[in-house]
Each structure stands twice: as C-alpha cells, then as structure tokens.
Amino acid sequence: IDAAQIVDEALEQGITLFVVNNRLQYETSRDSIPTELLNKWKQHKQELIDFLNQLD
C-alpha cells in the first residue's frame, strides 16, 4: 500500500488529507473516522506527509 492509495481511500470516504507545518491534518463532514483508516494514517504518517508535500 502506498501514500497515494491511502489518500484516495480517504477521499472516497469524504475525507481530505493535507499537511500543515509538516503535520498530517484532515477535513471531513463525517462524524468519525474509521479506525482502520486512522491506523493506516499512523502507520504511514511520514510517507503521507512526504507525498502530500510533493503535491503542493
């Protein structure tokens, strides 16, 4: 699994991931984030931050 897949998966569930001051953040209108997704974010945090920083 790679960062792009995780970002896409989040988007499919209505969650936008982004980076502020090198910290992973998210925006969503959902009430809660699925635990499975949160765990993936934690496991791949640095990859996600690097990936999202490249997009900007």
Rank of each mutant, 00 (worst) to 15 (best):
T28A: 07
L24A: 00
L37W: 05
Q25E: 13
K40P: 01
Q46S: 07
L37D: 02
A3K: 02
I1E: 07
F18P: 02
Q5S: 12
K42G: 08
G14W: 05
I1Q: 11
I33N: 02
E9R: 04
L48S: 00
S32W: 14
A3W: 07
I15A: 03
D50Y: 09
T28W: 04
A3C: 13
D50Q: 10
L11S: 07
T35E: 13
L24S: 01
G14Q: 05
Y26G: 02
L48T: 01
L17S: 11
L17N: 00
L38D: 02
E27N: 11
F51G: 00
S32T: 11
R30P: 02
F18N: 07
R30C: 07
D8Y: 15
R30G: 07
Q54S: 13
D50N: 10
N39C: 09
Q13K: 09
F18R: 14
E47R: 07
Y26E: 01
S32E: 11
D2R: 13
L17T: 00
L24E: 00
R30L: 13
F18L: 12
D8C: 15
R30Q: 07
V20A: 08
V20Q: 11
L11I: 07
R30Y: 06
Q13L: 14
S29F: 09
Q43T: 08
I49R: 02
V7K: 02
K40T: 07
L11P: 01
D50V: 08
R30F: 06
Y26H: 04
D31P: 11
N21H: 08
Q46W: 08
N21A: 07
T35F: 11
W41A: 03
Q43L: 13
Q25W: 15
Q54K: 13
L37E: 02
F51C: 02
I1A: 09
V20D: 08
F18C: 14
D50G: 06
I33C: 04
A4D: 03
S32N: 11
D56T: 15
E12N: 11
L37C: 06
E36W: 09
H44P: 00
Q25S: 09
L52M: 04
L48C: 02
E47Q: 10
I6K: 01
G14I: 03
S29C: 13
A3S: 04
D8L: 15
E36L: 06
I49W: 02
Q5C: 08
E47P: 05
K45I: 14
G14V: 02
G14F: 05
Q43D: 09
P34K: 04
I33G: 01
R23D: 15
A4P: 04
L11A: 13
I6T: 03
E47N: 07
L52I: 07
E47K: 09
I15R: 01
Q46R: 10
K40A: 05
L55G: 09
N22T: 04
E9H: 05
E36G: 07
E12L: 11
N39F: 12
S32Q: 10
N39V: 11
L24W: 01
P34Q: 04
P34Y: 03
I15G: 01
R23C: 15
I1T: 10
V19N: 02
K42V: 11
E9L: 04
L38N: 03
I6R: 01
L48D: 00
T28L: 03
F18A: 08
Y26I: 07
R30M: 12
S29A: 12
L11V: 06
K40V: 08
D2P: 08
L24Y: 01
I15N: 01
E12Y: 08
E9G: 03
Q5N: 07
L37H: 02
Y26M: 06
S32I: 11
I1Y: 10
V20R: 09
N22Q: 06
T35R: 11
K40L: 12
K45E: 15
E12M: 12
L17A: 01
N39E: 14
K45F: 14
L11E: 07
L17R: 00
I33T: 03
N39D: 14
I33F: 04
D2V: 14
D2L: 14
L48R: 00
